[in-house]
Each structure stands twice: as structure tokens, then as C-alpha cells.
């Protein structure tokens, strides 16, 4: 039964996943080329100085890409389900609603997470090629809130899409927007690192609250 759900989710997102991968890889390559060209134009020690002491974040251009990725995949997965309330088909399948939701979300989060893992790997390898490992590690830590924003964006978009009442939908949108905006506060590298355990812990309630949205979707009228 789970394989069927997997098939359905896969069919919905495959082209969007391909597009997301292309965009993410494209940005990763752009970052690599940017840094390479900066290093060919300036003395390496000056570029290091910018990175370490002036807090220049060389992969800054990438910061909204994970959020966009999360939003896109959530829409790809759940927009077809709310069109004509098509999720009624899945909700009637002989399996537990919460279990099915868990599986759909786990699939989506798995895909989103895998893309971010690739991003993180690219960032690390790029930075490691031109900078000491401290800088490479810090670059990944700096990107972590962006990835977190991608996951938040994914969960938030799912919850907003599944909500049936407009006032609640708007409220959900605002709440998730604030939480996501928090992940973009601060300047320079590693600014949010001390808050990451807290912001990361909030993923659990964000994940859980989608189940109520799904329940309301099921009971939410025609």
C-alpha cells in the first residue's frame, strides 16, 4: 500500500523535482564560479580576510533557493490534491489518514532534505577547495538556517494548502512567514548558529500541526 502512495507522490513531483535539482545545482555551480573568479581577480589572502574578518558570505546568493525549493515541492505534492478536493480519493483508501499523511510528508521532506544535502555538499566542497576547513564548515553552518527555512516553507505550504477556511489559511500563512523570516535574520556568517537548536526543535510542532490541517481538510465540507 505504501508503495502505491510512493508511486503517486513520485508521479506528482518528478518534473518539479528535476527542475528543483537543476536550479539548486545551477546555483551551486554559480557560487563555485563566483568564488573562482573573485580569487583570480584578487589576492587569495584578501579574499580570506573578507571571508573571515569582514564576514563576507560568498554563497549569499543561494539563501532563498532552499525556501523556493520547499515551497515548490509542497505545491507540486499538494496542489493537485486540493484541486477539486482530490485528496478525498486518497483519504478514502483503506489506510489510516494520519499514517498516510505521515508517509506523504516523510516522502516530501525526504526529497527536500536530499536536495539540501546535495547543496550542503556542494557548498562545502566549493569552500574547501579555496578556503581553510574552518571557513568551509562555517559556510555550511551559515546555510543551515536557509535549509531550515526550506523545510519550514515546505511544511507551512502544506498546512496552508490543506486548510479549508480562508481566515485560518491567512493566519497559518502569517505564522509560518514570521517563523521563516526569523531564519533570515542577522548578518555575516554563523549569526543564527546559537539559535539553531531551538529553531530546529520547532520543526517537530511544525510537522505535527499539518495532521490537524489534514483532518480539517477531510471534514471540511464539500
Amino acid at each position: 500500500m505504501w508503495r502505491s502512495i510512493l508511486l503517486k507522490e513520485w508521479l506528482k513531483i518528478r518534473w518539479f523535482l528535476a527542475a528543483a535539482l537543476i536550479v539548486n545545482l545551477g546555483f551551486s555551480i554559480k557560487i563555485f564560479l563566483d568564488i573562482r573568479s573573485i580569487l583570480s581577480a584578487e589576492h587569495a589572502q584578501m579574499v580570506w580576510y573578507q571571508a573571515v574578518h569582514l564576514h563576507t558570505v560568498f554563497h549569499h546568493d543561494m539563501r532563498y533557493v532552499p525556501l523556493l525549493t520547499g515551497l515548490t515541492l509542497a505545491a507540486a505534492q499538494f496542489f493537485p490534491e486540493i484541486l477539486g478536493r482530490r485528496m478525498r480519493i486518497a483519504l478514502h483508501l483503506p489506510m489510516a489518514r494520519d499514517g498516510m499523511m505521515f508517509f506523504c510528508l516523510a516522502f516530501g521532506l525526504g526529497v527536500v532534505g536530499a536536495i539540501f544535502l546535495v547543496d550542503a555538499l556542494f557548498i562545502h566542497l566549493t569552500m574547501r577547495a579555496y578556503f581553510p576547513f574552518e571557513v568551509a564548515v562555517s559556510a555550511v553552518m551559515t546555510a543551515l538556517p536557509w535549509f531550515l527555512a526550506g523545510v519550514w516553507g515546505y511544511l507551512g505550504a502544506v498546512a496552508v494548502l490543506l486548510e479549508t477556511a480562508w481566515p485560518r489559511r491567512v493566519f497559518f500563512f502569517l505564522v509560518f512567514s514570521v517563523l521563516i523570516a526569523m531564519l533570515y535574520s542577522g548578518v555575516g556568517y554563523g549569526w543564527l548558529t546559537p539559535a539553531l537548536p531551538w529553531l530546529g526543535a520547532l520543526l517537530l510542532p511544525a510537522f505535527l500541526c499539518v495532521f490537524e490541517s489534514a483532518r480539517r481538510f477531510q471534514r471540511g465540507g464539500a
Binding site: 494520519d98 505564522v175 514570521v178 520547532l202 511544525a206 510537522f207
Partner: peptide, 19 residues
């Protein structure tokens, strides 16, 4: 799960608003 899920959103909403 219903209670937890509902409470989860309340917590998120209150945190977001208190920020």
C-alpha cells in the same frame, strides 16, 4: 495526535506572535 497536532500549531502561533 489530534491534541498534539492542535497544540503544536498553538505553540507555533504564540511563539511567532510573541516575537
Amino acid at each position: 495526535l489530534k491534541t498534539l497536532s492542535r497544540l503544536s500549531f498553538l505553540v507555533l502561533a504564540i511563539l511567532a506572535m510573541s516575537y
